[in-house]
């Protein structure tokens, strides 16, 4: 079973990398950018076949390692 974890910075946490990306996009002439935030994706291949169990296991992985919940949110998507 493939599971995708998307990790993003919480609202209100300064994201200097996102700011730099935003500035570079403006520099390229893209108009109307209201913000850019950078995150990361972790794709997991699991032996588990039950989506609910897979989701619960990955949530545990996020809490223990994949995300730093002081500054980051995570979203889990079961890709099948």
């Amino acid at each position: 079973m493939k599971v995708r974890v998307t990790i993003t910075l919480k609202a209100g946490v300064l994201d200097p990398q996102g700011k730099a990306i935003e500035g570079a996009l403006r520099g390229l002439g893209f108009a109307g950018i209201d913000g850019a935030r950078q995150g990361k994706i972790v794709d997991l291949a699991l032996a588990e076949t039950d989506p609910d169990k897979a989701r619960a296991t990955v949530a545990d992985m996020c809490e223990k390692l994949l995300a730093n919940t002081v500054i980051e949110n995570y979203d889990i998507a079961v890709l099948g």
Partner: peptide, 11 residues
């Protein structure tokens, strides 16, 4: 320890 250490503000 509480909190987190993030990328330097000026990158």
């Amino acid at each position: 320890l509480p909190g987190a250490l993030m990328r330097n503000a000026h990158l």
